[in-house]
Amino acid sequence: MLKVDNLTKIFGKTRAVDDLSFELEEGDVCGFIGPNGAGKTTTMRIIATLEEPTDGQVRVGGESIHEEPYRIRRRIGFMPDHYGTYPDMTCRDYLEFYARAYEIEPKARARRIDGIMDFTGLGDIADKKVEELSKGMRQRLNLSRALINDPKLMVMDEPAAGLDPRARVELRYLIRNLAEQGKTVFVSSHILTELSEICDHMLIIDQGRKISFGSVEEIQRGLREGFEIRVRLVDPSQVEGLVRFLVQRPGIQDVRPGENGVLLFSLRDEAERIPALLREAVNEGFSVMEFRPETPTMEDVFMRITGQTNGGNNGNGA
């Protein structure tokens, strides 16, 4: 449905998007994650044909953004991170206006608008002025507008920004519903947990470069790079010995002795090795009181990855 190849966008001296490639199938829900300034909005604007890439190709349903931007526009629903509001217009007028802009047949318009208002829950406020809407309502209106041409691909730029928790839950529900209708959804956020529940794919970028792309499980597995294990010994004097013991084992890194017989290390290996490691340690005579593998949350991983790339660059610059 969406195929992005070696996409690059350069603004003056900034490489906003740098050699980005990925592909989405029909019905996929893909989360697009990255910190501020990572290039999410730029990528989405290029997909929506609002911006011309410096290099690379994007195909939506097999058609290229370079050759058929008008056909692509009619096929996608783009929800930008800003709203266009107008004075003196009601929600219904607003949708009616966009229905005309999409050149929807006059006969089909009213039915389409009613259907969408039902779906997004705008029915009660159809006659309210657009200017007077709250943020959550505006976001619904924004979504309704993007849905008016019954798009096959939805591109949503930070739809959850500024919503309260309840509205977020509702938004997630709406997105899942869209996916069930067979639409491909490409949705960005800088908060990872917000999307991990509803997405089946994730694309993580930083400074315009792809950091990882795959199904949510793959990413969680791939990103974790093993486990963080916390060991606590009854006898604190044994810690030094344990350090020596661990350092000799393969796949163990970053051994950090702490206070009161506590010791932390990371294991870059499969989960199956954890019980074996514990058995070996006990057999060696260490008085293990606690042996707890901790899986880092997606959030931790994300922080670490983006932190690393930033740190790396700073290092190079200095």
Binding site: A48, L50, R73, H82, G84, Y98, A101, N149
Partner: peptide, 14 residues
Amino acid sequence: SNRTFELYEIAGMS
């Protein structure tokens, strides 16, 4: 200022 022209572009309005 409202950046609404973009929305018309996306709508495929010529």
